[in-house]
Every structure is written in C-alpha cells, then in structure tokens.
Design a protein around this nucleic acid. Structure first.
Lengths: 159, 159
DNA sequence: AACAATCGTTGACTTTTTCAATGATCCGTA
DNA sequence: TACGGATCATTGAAAAAGTCAACGATTGTT
C-alpha cells in the first residue's frame, strides 16, 4: 500500500461551500484522527482519553479530577471511569488534595510513566503519518493556530 | 464581561506537553465548537450534522447517501436518520439515482434552501465569535491547513 | 444466467453521554 | 463557633449516539 495509509484524494463533495466550514473540517479531521490514534494506543490498553489522563498524571501538574474534566471537555463522571480504569491497572493513583480534601489529585505510578513513554512514542509516530501532508512548519503553525483559537494569544511566559 | 463570551483564559493544565497534542486540540476545539454551533442552529431545528446534509443537498452536487456518509464520516444508517428527519420536514427529498437506481440522490426543496440560507448566516456569525481570537488571515490559514491535512495539497483546478 | 458486490434500510446491540442525587468538605457570614 | 450554600468525587439511571449484521433491490462481472 501507499506510503501513508491515510486519506489522500479530495472527495467530490469537498467542492461545496461546506468544504470550507471550520466546524466540519474539525469534525472530520478529529474523526479520522481518533480512529487512528485509538488504534495506535490499543497496544498499550489505552485510548485517546485514557492516554490524555495518563499524560496529565505524568506531567507533574498534579491535576484534580475536576481540572481534568474541564480541560478534556468531559463530564466529571466520565473522569471517574477513566481514572478507575487506570488506577485498577496500577498506572495512576488518587491522592488527597493538598488544600482541598474533597478533591483527588491524580498522580502517575512508575509503571504508569513507563507505559506512557511507550504509548507517547507510538502516538507521535501515528500523528506524524496523519499530518504527513503538512510540512514541519505547517504542522507547528496548525498547532499554534488551534491553541490560539482555544486560549487566545499566548501569554509570554515560559517558552 | 469580556468582549467575546467564548473561552479566554489559558487553563493551568495547558502547560503540559499534551497541550501541544494535535489530537487533543482538535477534540477540544471541536467539542466547544459543536456545542455553540448546535445552539446557534437550534433556532432552525437543525444540528451540525443535519445542517451539513442540508448544505450538501443545496449545493447542486446531488450527493448520494453513500457519498454523504463517506464525506461526513458517518455510518450509512446515520445518514438514513438524518435524511428521514429533513425529508419529513420538507427540506430535502430523495430522488432516484441517475446511473444507479439503488442510490438515492438528496436534493433540496425551496423551503430547504430558504431555511438553509437563514441557518447558514447564523452559523457563520457563531463561528466568527468562536474564532474571534484569530485574525482574518489566521482564520483562512487555519482552514487551509485543515483542508491540506485532510486531502493533501489543493489541486490547482477551480478557484 | 449466475455470482459477487453495492446501495439504502431496518433493527438489535453496545458504547457514550447526560443528568440528578448523595456524602464529604470548603468557604463565607453571622 | 455554627450555619448555609457551594463545590468535589461518586453513583446510578435514563437518553442519545454509535456499531454492526442482515435484508431486498440493483448493479456489474464472469
């Protein structure tokens, strides 16, 4: 098969005005991307969402479940399920919130970090093939635009 | 309140490496966008998907349901439901395929085009507020990058 | 003419999403 | 200090969405 197994030919219907609709473009890229990402993560028993949770658990930011729900656009009850799963498999654990004892802080275990490193490599390779049509600069530009659309102009702290 | 009612402040967790993950950025922008889009379209009894179908029915491209399913990344049975709904409301109708009598071509009615025009205006206004953080050029750049990621470099036919 | 493949459709099944209710805890105010 | 309202994680149920196999009708191929 071809060098990249992702979609290549422009479909007939893309000519319609809706082919420029941001909402549709996002939905479509997200749909095809999710499929591939989940496939790439399946080797590690992860999916896009559980990987996101695991990543944030490994980040050192000590997120609470509420923060995870907000950041990942999920219902709090969905975060419970995700964390339950990861915790049962020994990849993360719940710790008591430091200022707030109602909140649970999600932190990674050593095994969690081990799995995460492998999964991250696989995911990065996967996303690279998805965006194979874009140059390195375009790839970075896309990220920057998405972030700006979401959170406004980057504050000039950190790099 | 702020000038745009959409999200503005960068959340704490965005600092994590995953804040640069294209998959997550797409998911997040799509999630918040869908919510707003559906809200904007609700006045016309439409949602993102039924609007997409209606748009393509109005495009003159005479799409078949199979083409709609492929283009919108939907299961054929989902297209059945969407078209059923629009047809019951008199916005589109099913016509027999020209070369293939198995296929159904989806075409708009006069009423369908009327509704579509109004809904499109509302949606465009809605998306403009969503991408308010982007300049006009950045907005166009984002569209171009998304299209390129999906379908490769634009073929130099049409304008 | 026979066969496999495709289109739209249906219906069953699974997964995901949504939402209200709960106990524990926090915060502000009296 | 004690009260009241708000927030956190959790549960469970209901609603919505997604997935998938099977079907009749039709197509194209052998």
């Amino acid at each position: 098969m071809g060098p990249q197994s992702t979609e290549v030919e422009t479909p007939r219907l893309a000519e319609a005005k809706i082919g420029n609709d941001v909402g549709l473009l996002l939905a479509k890229l997200h749909a095809t991307g999710s499929l591939l990402n989940n496939k790439a993560l399946a080797d590690y028993g992860l999916r896009e969402r559980s990987f996101s949770v695991l990543t944030l658990a490994c980040s050192g930011l000590e997120p609470t479940q509420r923060e995870l729900a907000d950041f990942l656009s999920l219902d709090p009850s969905q975060v419970v399920s995700l964390v339950d799963d990861l915790e049962h498999r020994g990849l993360v654990k719940r710790a008591q919130g430091k200022q707030d004892r109602r909140a649970k802080i999600i932190v990674s275990t050593a095994e969690g970090r081990r799995i995460h490193n492998k999964a991250r490599a696989a995911l990065e390779a996967c996303e690279e093939t998805q965006l194979a049509a874009l140059s390195e600069e375009e790839n970075a530009e896309l990220r920057a635009l998405l972030k700006k659309a979401l959170w406004g102009p980057p504050s000039n702290q950190t790099s």
